[in-house]
Amino acid sequence: MIDLFSIILILISALTIIASIISVLMKDLLSCVIALAIMSLLLSLYFYMLHAPDVAIAEAGVGACITTAIFIVAIKATERYEKEEER
């Protein structure tokens, strides 16, 4: 029996996986950082729905704001686009 709670959980986890895959595959590093922020926010929503509000507040504060700001500052100091290199 699949109820509404399980459907929302599966939807949120699927969106989290999609956002993290986008953050890996994009060449524009600023888009990667925005995708990471979205992933972090969805992850905090997931924690809240699993009855862990402490972890949800910490994740939303640190993961979605501080980490994004640090990454954007680092991108501003270095380069924005990822270089093509042979592997």
């Binding site: 402490d54 910490a58 504060g61 704001c65 501080i66 700001a69």
Partner: peptide
Amino acid sequence: IIMHGHLTPGGGFQGGSVAASAIVMLI
């Protein structure tokens, strides 16, 4: 969040990170 850390969900780390995010927004 910090002052009600022992009554409601939250605590020192969570409230501090929220305040730091406010300062980061100003920056």
